[in-house]
């Protein structure tokens, strides 16, 4: 799985939702703007608390009161800060016009802070360090990209999304469960 939290804030109250497969494609879930995202989130399972820093791999918080989107995740964005900056600007200037769009730089901790939740509740100290992977990630984060390379990466994100329109386990399971309920 790619465990994900979605959070909706309305009238100063927040609800936390859970999706099992979305974190690696969460950037692509944001393409369609606030209305589509909220419509997607509402039927998801409600959670009592946020995922912790080990299990959570991405989150999107939609603050309807402040018109603010705070998110992190997506395999294209995880370790590529230059692409994150570009991606955020793309959303602000296209489908999220008028909204504050921000990357949650500390992941679940940033989300918890925004909600006023004690960050200790999301910190998992059992996190294991993988040295080899750590070096790889650091190297990727330090890479500088030309504008053309950033445009290529955004294009790849878009193409990947279009090629996988049928791949949406969360939506698939949702319709399956709906049918199942009807059948009793």
């Amino acid at each position: 799985g790619h465990r994900t939290n979605y959070i909706l804030i309305e009238n100063k109250e927040h609800d936390i939702y859970y999706a099992h497969w979305d974190a690696n494609i969460i950037g692509r879930k944001l393409f369609y703007g606030p209305d589509s995202l909220v419509q997607y989130i509402r039927p998801l399972s409600v959670s009592e608390k946020l995922l912790d820093t080990v299990w959570g791999e991405g989150a999107a918080l939609v603050d309807m009161d402040q018109q603010k989107l705070l998110f992190w995740g997506d395999e294209f964005l995880w370790h590529t800060p230059a692409l994150v900056t570009c991606f955020v600007q793309m959303l602000r200037e296209t489908t999220w016009k008028g909204w504050q769009v921000e990357w949650a730089s500390e992941g679940q901790v940033t989300i918890a802070k925004y909600l006023g939740v004690d960050t200790q509740t999301v910190l998992n100290t059992e996190e294991e360090e993988d040295d080899d992977e750590g070096e790889e990630v650091e190297a990727k984060e330090a890479t500088t990209y030309t504008v053309a390379e950033l445009a290529n990466l955004l294009d790849q994100m878009l193409q990947n999304h279009l090629q996988n329109l049928d791949y949406d386990p969360t939506a698939t399971i949702r319709s399956f469960i709906k049918d199942h309920h009807k059948k009793g």
């Binding site: 393409f31 600007q89 793309m90 296209t94 489908t95 445009a151 955004l154 294009d155 878009l158």
Partner: peptide, 26 residues
């Protein structure tokens, strides 16, 4: 559907503008 096509078009145009240097990045 139509909304999807519009969104994809919008994003594609933005990416093309970025490629052509029409977008000012911070």
């Amino acid at each position: 559907d139509r909304h999807r096509e519009q969104v994809i078009q919008q994003l594609s145009t933005w990416i093309a503008d970025l490629r052509e240097g029409k977008v000012s990045l911070p």
